[in-house]
């Protein structure tokens, strides 16, 4: 078992002639919360989409847990323990909060139509276990009072929490969080941060998160990786990143500043 849970080697993705990710190499250590920051258009989300099998790469490879997972479809990555959330919440809007969580575990025998129809007792047994687990997660996320609400009716922040909750239904090894804090209010953001830390410490999840909120990053992440124009610009601690000239330039060059509220 190598020290790195995820190794990205020279990964590239071209859209037409445009390079969204070019020759990008990143290593994520086990047990860390690695932050990925960078100005808009620097290829962060494309990178996630490549790792998670939502896009086909144009070159390079991705190794997860000592296994080459380049261009493996996302549903297969799930069973290997690599999960992701989305920048815009992808809740199942016509399912209740509890159902959103209960659908997650893989290999439920009730998901085979024949078993679902003709072995009701087996299915009921499993369902009880899954439901118990889902209830735990709901409580953990402080969404208990909304268990039976349709996920479509939740607020933006609650949807993000729910998405995080989905990753807790199974034993994930690595979770990719795509701007999990965007559009979430301050109090809820604190809960989110706590939840992430707790999962990291208690359950040994490795996180890799794209974030814009430097406070949030500063609180959770070590190390951070700064991306610009499709490749890695900087790697190190948050404090170092804030002082690094290349990093500042890459942000200023695009007309925005690193939010520093300290």
């Amino acid at each position: 078992m190598s020290e790195n849970i995820l190794e990205i080697n020279n990964l590239s993705k071209y859209f037409g002639g445009l390079a969204a990710v070019s020759d990008c190499s990143i290593k994520v250590k086990r047990g860390t919360i690695t932050g990925i920051i960078g100005p808009n258009g620097s290829g962060k989300t494309t990178l996630f989409n490549l790792i998670a099998g939502n896009l086909k790469s144009s070159g390079g490879n991705v190794v997860f847990d000592d296994e080459n997972i380049t261009d493996v479809p996302s549903y297969e990555l799930f069973s290997k323990g690599l999960l992701r959330t989305f920048q815009i919440a992808h809740e199942f809007s016509n399912l209740s909060v509890l159902e959103n969580l209960m659908m997650v575990p893989g290999n439920q025998s009730g998901e085979k139509i024949m078993t679902a129809l003709f072995k009701p007792s087996l299915v009921a047994q499993e369902e009880a276990v899954v439901k118990e687990k889902a209830k735990e997660v709901v409580e953990f996320l402080n969404l208990g009072h909304l268990s039976n609400e349709l996920a479509g009716n939740l607020s933006g922040g609650q949807k993000k929490l729910l998405e995080l909750g989905r990753t807790m239904m199974v034993d994930a090894k690595l979770v990719l969080l795509d701007e999990v804090g965007a559009g979430v209010n301050r109090t809820l953001l604190k809960d989110l941060g706590t939840a992430i830390e707790k999962l990291n410490k208690e359950k040994g999840y490795t996180f890799c998160m794209i974030e814009h909120d430097m406070d949030f990053i500063g609180r959770l992440c070590d190390p951070v990786i700064v991306m610009a124009e499709g490749s890695v610009l900087f790697e190190g601690s948050v404090e170092e990143a804030k002082k690094d000239e290349k990093v500042i330039e890459s942000y200023l060059g695009r007309g925005s500043k690193i939010k520093d509220t300290n």
Binding site: A52, N54, P73, S79, F86, H90, Q108, V123
Partner: peptide, 25 residues
Amino acid sequence: ALYSPWGRMMRAIRDNEEAANAMGK
């Protein structure tokens, strides 16, 4: 079938294919 875990999975897929894929379906 609709109210079984299978139906739940199908409804999830209908709601959001990408997310269902990411959840291993």
